[in-house]
């Protein structure tokens, strides 16, 4: 379970800048939450704090009752770009997490093949990232995090550079995967449909300093054919309304 209380983050460069203030929410184990808001509202900052890559200046962040720390092994972080190393093939990129953890090579190979098969990219294993499409690259990044059997997925606009159809395909893959494994998921996005499709709870942020403006419950997420239901469109409209008018 993820519990965030009164979180505050200040960047201290030449001028100090308050990026997040008074952010509180909880995410029950195995649930998903989407974070949406304007550029510069601190969405990515929040994710970096949760990943243990950035220190917070106030408040509390608890993951399964423990204060957040760098290199928590069960946390997976997926970024929009640069998650993959250009000098490693798809297979080498997928096995990077296991390699860093010193997993024996037999076991590593098996886990990597399993994850790459699951995401349909095993046949591209010898390609370098430059030889893969955007969608395939993001599948490699997801496969890499799957090999580590994480219980918390953090995703920073993972599909934002993909075309609409590829993006929907990956959203479906992600949903199927979540329904099978029930890991907790925090998804930062600027795409309203994506937030409604993948978030059981939608947190709408406002900027400078970033804080939660509104929370929309979206319990129907994951239902068969949700993307084409009336309710889905209503939720999207509701989210858009809050973002535009602030209520």
């Amino acid at each position: 379970m993820l519990k965030i209380e009164d979180l505050e983050v200040t960047y201290k460069n030449k001028i100090s800048f308050l990026a997040l203030q008074g952010v509180s929410f909880t995410l029950e184990e195995g649930h998903t939450c989407a974070i949406i808001g304007p550029s510069g509202c601190g969405k990515s900052t929040l994710l970096y704090v949760l990943a243990g890559l950035l220190e917070h200046s106030g408040g509390q962040v608890l993951i399964n009752g423990e204060t957040v720390r760098p290199k928590r092994r069960e946390t997976a972080l997926i970024l929009q770009d640069y998650g993959l190393l250009p000098w490693k093939t798809a297979q080498e990129n997928t096995s990077l997490g296991l390699e860093i953890r010193g997993v024996p090579s037999e076991e590593k190979r098996a886990l990597v093949e399993e994850a790459m098969q699951e995401l349909g990219i095993w046949e591209f294993r010898d390609n370098y990232p430059a030889q893969l499409s955007g969608g395939q690259r993001q599948r490699v990044a997801i496969a890499r995090s799957l090999t580590l059997k994480p219980d918390l997925f953090l995703m920073d606009e993972p599909f934002s550079s993909l075309d609409a159809l590829t993006r929907e395909g990956l959203q479906n893959t992600l949903l199927e995967f979540w329904q099978k494994r029930r890991a907790s998921m925090v998804l930062v996005t600027h795409n309203i449909e994506e937030a409604v499709f993948l978030g059981q709870r939608i947190l709408i942020f406002s900027g400078s300093p970033g804080r939660i403006l509104h929370v929309i419950e979206n319990k129907e997420m994951g239902e068969q054919g949700y993307r084409n239901q009336q309710l889905f469109y209503q939720r999207c409209s509701r989210v858009r309304e809050v973002i535009e008018k602030g209520v």
Partner: peptide, 14 residues
């Protein structure tokens, strides 16, 4: 060296 690249590998526990 791209910082996000470093971050993403750090997040794998490097």
């Amino acid at each position: 060296v791209n910082k996000s690249m470093v971050d993403s590998v750090l997040s794998l526990g490097a």
